[in-house]
Each structure stands twice: as structure tokens, then as C-alpha cells.
Write a protein that binds this DNA or RNA. Structure first.
Lengths: 173, 173
DNA sequence: TATTGTTATACTCTATAACTATA
DNA sequence: TATAGTTATAGAGTATAACAATA
């Protein structure tokens, strides 16, 4: 028994509206010194799941070249260190420097304080419900889309051939 | 009594994660013929709030040049009609053509069916809660950011002077 | 003088293709 | 032959600045 089409429609529009509001906020806030929003996301992902670059790209849901450039930028700013993986000398192990940890902390603190002020009047339960609802939605979209893809005519085409980086991204969590 | 900083943090990360998942979906789905996701959003906004172009830009949260180009594209595809506003000959009144209504209907139907399949296993209440939570969050960010801005040193600077299109966007709903 | 809309230009973030080095 | 990463190039979407026409 699927969700009512009207509710699905409202959810779609709600998500797009949220994205619009956030884009407007990104224009004015969400910039920290030289760091764009995307680089800030890379910084956080390194803090949480540091390690091989290729795995980070998968978790971030971006292609290898995109991550490569963000890492080059972050390394140039002194926020990230890259060293070769001793077990696989093709790969890189990525980690935050002390400066990187510091700047990420500043970014997070600033965002949290700002969100807290925007959420003035909310109670804890309301906020927790929003966290849960958004998390559930992300999971549903991830697994749903992931379950969709792996059916590229299993008989006619012998192998997918394309790297298909979305899949890794969607399977990440 | 503000929301707990830990909860605020989770909410921030949850929203960014959701954006990542949606970006991955956008790459594979969410394209309808020649129409990019942004143009599809313009199409929907015209359907819901058609009228003066400048007001549409405010509701979409984009600058006038961006809307101008999207409208030119949509007009070229035959999905949108523009005519001068008889009451203000600088302005344009924007509306969907029959083809525009049709294509928007197709887009919505396709998205709804897809989301319904992704939300397999959800019950109606869970979906309704997600709609509510996301709507409340959008509203909070909109009004919060809007309340923040109108304080550009009210004594030293006589007038804002800059168009400040974010404000209109944030005040739209 | 302010507002509506357009064009030109630039920025951010992204992807694909072609390449090197390693496995 | 396949994978990790880089560089080059292109595309989508956005903004600011400069402009024309109208108010």
C-alpha cells in the first residue's frame, strides 16, 4: 500500500522548497574564509570517515576528479594531509591537520549557533522529529535508488562497464 | 531555551546528507527531455503562482537574470508564454501554455510514482510527518534568516540600496 | 530616480574523457 | 586488465554589472 500520491507530491515540493531556502542561505552565510560549502562538506566527511580518497568520494557522492580538486585546495590551505597508502601505493590516505580540525570546529560551531537562533521557539522533540524524518527520507531515497539501478538487462549486456559512482554513493551509508 | 546543540548538529548534517542523496538522484533521474531540474522548478512555480516575472524570481529565490534565461528557454520550447503587463509596460506576465501544462503534469506524475516506489514500506502517517517536519524547517530558516538581515546599521547607512533579492525570496512564503 | 527585464561575464560545483602509476 | 588518482574540458546553475525601456 503505497503512500498517497498527494502526500508524495507534497513531500517532493517540500524538499525542493527546502533546497531553495538553503541555497539562499548559502549565498549569504555558510562561507568560511576561502572555503566553499562543498569543501566544508569534504572536511566534515574526512573528520568522520577519513581514510582512502576513493572511499571518501563514494561517501560524498561525487566523482574522483571532484574530490581530487577539493583535496588539492584543502591541502593547499593546510587543512588536509595526504599520504600514500602503504598497503596500496596507488591509493591515498586522507586526514585532517590540526588546522583542519580547528577550522571545521569553527564552522560547526557557527552553523549550530545560527541554526539554534533560527529554531527559536522549537522544542527539543520537534527538532528530534525533524532529524528523524529527514534521516528516514534520505535512507529511503538512497536504498530505493540503489535497488532500482542494478538491473542493466542482465542477459544482453555482459558487464556494466561504467564506474557508476552514484551506486557507491547510494550504498555508502 | 534553544534546541540542544547536538540536535542542531544532527539536523544540519541530516539536511546536507539529504541534499547529497538528491543530487545523486538528479544525475540519473529528474531530467525530462530537454528540461533541467531548475527549469522544471520554474515551470511548477509558474503553474502555482504565475504572473509577474519579478515576483516569480522572488518566490524562486533566484536573481532576475537567471529567471530571464530560464523563461527564454521555456518559451523557446513552447512551454511558457510571456506578454507585457498592460498595467505596467516594463513588466511581463508569465503563464504556462497547454504544452507546458502537459509536460509539467508528466514530470509530476513520474516523480510521484518514483517517490512512492522509494517509500515502499512507509505508512501514510510517517510520510505526513516528514512533510510537516520539512515544511516547518523551511519556514524556520526562511523567517529566521529574514529577521536577521534587515539590520544594516540603520543610522550610518540611509538606505539598503542593494536589491537584496534573497530577502524577497525568504519573505515569499 | 527607481524598477523591469536582458545581455555579458564570472563563479561554484559537478561530470566525462584521457592520462599515469600501481595492482 | 582493472583500479587510484590527476588533469583538461564541458555543462548546469547561479550571481553581479551594465544596459534599455518604462514608471
Amino acid at each position: 500500500m503505497p503512500v498517497d500520491p498527494g502526500t508524495a507530491r507534497e513531500l517532493i515540493h517540500g524538499v525542493f522548497d527546502l533546497q531553495r531556502v538553503i541555497r539562499c542561505l548559502s549565498a549569504t552565510e555558510l562561507k568560511h574564509g576561502d572555503l566553499g560549502v562543498a569543501s566544508q562538506g569534504v572536511l566534515r566527511m574526512i573528520a568522520e570517515h577519513g581514510g582512502r580518497a576513493v572511499d571518501l568520494a563514494g561517501k560524498l557522492g561525487v566523482s574522483a576528479p571532484v574530490l581530487s580538486r577539493h583535496l588539492a585546495e584543502l591541502e593547499g590551505l593546510g587543512f588536509v594531509e595526504r599520504r600514500r597508502d602503504p598497503d596500496d601505493r596507488r591509493a591515498q590516505l586522507v586526514a585532517l591537520t590540526e588546522a583542519g580540525v580547528t577550522v571545521l570546529g569553527e564552522i560547526e560551531e557557527h552553523r549550530i549557533a545560527r541554526l539554534q537562533s533560527y529554531l527559536e521557539g522549537w522544542d527539543e522533540g520537534q527538532a528530534a522529529e525533524a532529524v528523524m524524518a529527514i534521516g528516514q527520507l534520505s535512507d529511503a531515497l538512497r536504498t530505493g535508488a540503489h535497488r532500482m539501478r542494478p538491473t542493466p538487462s542482465p542477459e544482453t549486456s555482459p558487464a556494466p562497464q561504467t564506474p557508476q559512482n552514484q551506486e557507491e554513493a547510494l550504498a555508502a551509508r
